[in-house]
Amino acid sequence: MKRFRIPPIPSSELTPEPVYLQRRRFLRELGLSAPLLLAGCGRSDEAAAVPEPTGPTGAELQASRPSRWDAKDALTSWRDATQYNNYYEFGTGKGDPARNAGRFKPRPWTVEIAGHAEVIGRFDLQDLLKPHALEERIYRHRCVEAWSMVIPWVGIPLGECLKRFKPTSRAKYVAFTTVNRPEEMPGLAYDVLAWPYREALRIDEAMHPLAILAVGLYGRELPNQNGAPLRLIVPWKYGFKGAKSIVRIEFWERQPATSWNLAGPSEYGFYSNVNPAVDHPRWSQASERRIAGSGTSLFANRVPTLPFNGYAEEVAGLYAGMDLRANY
């Protein structure tokens, strides 16, 4: 198998150990005072006012850590990564998913495999995961809204999983569908996107070793608001490509329709590769606010956005000869 190198990241971006530990303490203190601060809150969707655990929760996962995958950037804090989410099925505010995902039941869980493959049917999540060893991958996560995080995911390589179902030669695309449970997901009551949420990749993108199916973050099972129990992570694309709480994976011959592309074709392309040279019609994609939560800087730092989110060396070949302006 081909080896991949993560582009070098200056050591200045690393979080020193004492700062990391300090951050833990800071988070604990903030957690203790959270109820006190509730009183002064303006906008509920921005103020981090929900009393919440200040350290990772959820069952621990055993994962190997092939270091070749690790971004060396300073990690986003667990708290920020689990309290600041876009998951419109739980509401459109960044704090809504953490607030509203409590009723969601990620177990038991089955995934339906369908379309152009020799092996299709409904599979229990455990059976889907069993043949694969869990891996930890520290990836940069770039939202189309021009903010970014650095998150240690736990998951399995998507391609290796898909190969087990023996996609046929007609399988040119892979579509992912998010669960649709209005009784557990209050955001579904609103006509924000074409529900259920759908995303898709070209088959060669899906087979790329960087693409994973994540089941956890920070060494623990995924919290509901992060897409439990199974979500897609494609680190060189904008975050919305990573469908959450996947219930269906289907092999298609033609390019499938995707939810954000249906909502705004001129704003959200099918490919949606991170590209600083192609702006969103309403804002620049040249730079991003890095939410790295080191506890040492008051504000998220603005950093330049890298082509393919810094994974160009690994994935640019997938798009050789393609006009990336036309295929945004």
Binding site: S33, G42, R43, R289, I291
Partner: peptide, 26 residues
């Protein structure tokens, strides 16, 4: 005063810049 207080208390959420932009704009 609310913005300065929340800033001082680091209570503006994960993306304080966006929070300040939205609140002052509002």
């Amino acid at each position: 005063a609310g913005m300065l207080w929340d800033l001082q208390q680091q209570n503006l959420g994960p993306d304080p810049v966006a929070a300040l932009e939205h609140r002052s704009g509002d």
